[in-house]
Design a protein around this nucleic acid. Sequence first.
DNA 1: TTGTTTCGTTCACCTAAGTTAATAAAATTC
DNA 2: GAATTTTATTAACTTAGGTGAACGAAACAA
Lengths: 193, 193
Amino acid sequence: MENILFDFISKYMPLSDEEKQVIIDLDIFSIVKKGTILLKEGQMSNKSFFVLKGCLRIYYIIDGEEKTTAFYTEMEGISPHCAINKKPSDYYISCVEDSIIVASDTEMETTGFEKFPRFETLCRIMSEQLLAKSQMIFDEYKTSTPEQRYLNLLKTRPDLLQRVPQYQLASFLGITPQSLSRLRARIVDKRTE
Amino acid sequence: MENILFDFISKYMPLSDEEKQVIIDLDIFSIVKKGTILLKEGQMSNKSFFVLKGCLRIYYIIDGEEKTTAFYTEMEGISPHCAINKKPSDYYISCVEDSIIVASDTEMETTGFEKFPRFETLCRIMSEQLLAKSQMIFDEYKTSTPEQRYLNLLKTRPDLLQRVPQYQLASFLGITPQSLSRLRARIVDKRTE
DNA sequence: TTGTTTCGTTCACCTAAGTTAATAAAATTC
DNA sequence: GAATTTTATTAACTTAGGTGAACGAAACAA
């Protein structure tokens, strides 16, 4: 289980055995069942999550409706807004599938950074890259139509369409489930005509 | 000029005089005229920008049309995707008003981090906060209509409406200039009826 | 100053997404 | 395995954004 994480980290920097042991000793790996809610609206939490296997999802409840804004799958991490800003959470994080995750909290990180400054470099680089990536994705979202976004998802994250219920995908694409159904039918029509 | 920057940084961590001098010696402050293009599509650059005064803007040219996706004003910074990922830029960065900016490059940052590890902590914290903020803004965008986004902009960044031409605001809101015109007329109608 | 370009608004028409509701299909629960 | 809940589809109707075009106002340039 740990090796999945270390393989991932080694893409950014190789870790010594000592450094690996420090991480293992933190006892941050956990197995979570589908449907588990890791964070609730209004909750204060300083936990960050990293997905080794499975799928997590961020959603809001607005006017009684679930609005899904993000999915996190293998090798993706979430540092929730509430953990960074020490404010109650605006959203929920739940587990779409049975998953294996790494859950760390800010204190663990701070003490880790003190012992091994390279951890901080690692986190800075990862944050910077995630920020740049998240802005690219936002730009792509803004500059395309729901249909283009759906087709793009089909290309870039085809697994999501299999793993995730359609009503969650719909709000992730910024539309209603009905519109997504219609949109898909429209695409099939185009192909066969 | 430097003091604007140091006041800002002091919100995250106080700097010693020595540290301040290191920053000043980097000679990173510059004054840029309205209309200056700081980054072009296709260009490789490792420069990041921080706005002390004025306004920068990111835009794409898609099918010959400008699509503005972001504005950066006082105390906001951009680390362009191309600088982080060492790839040619997908977008342009231009100067909406005469501005005073800090332009730093990745080498400067790396050498700075080596001399003063606290700079890295500063950058990590700022990146993490920016990431969290950018995801909140994305979520807000996804979960609201163009009209709500416009009204929200009116509340949260009223200055932008004064500083920026409307056709740039329109694509920032994800709609055409015509739709923005209509949308504004609709809001006035609602108020007066 | 005049001519030119850019910008914002308005209109008519088109298209696609939202809404409400009914129904079918699939997944869960007991 | 039957009952219940959840999820997906379809349809009719409404609403709002996209498109193309025309016009006036403002900004800019010669």
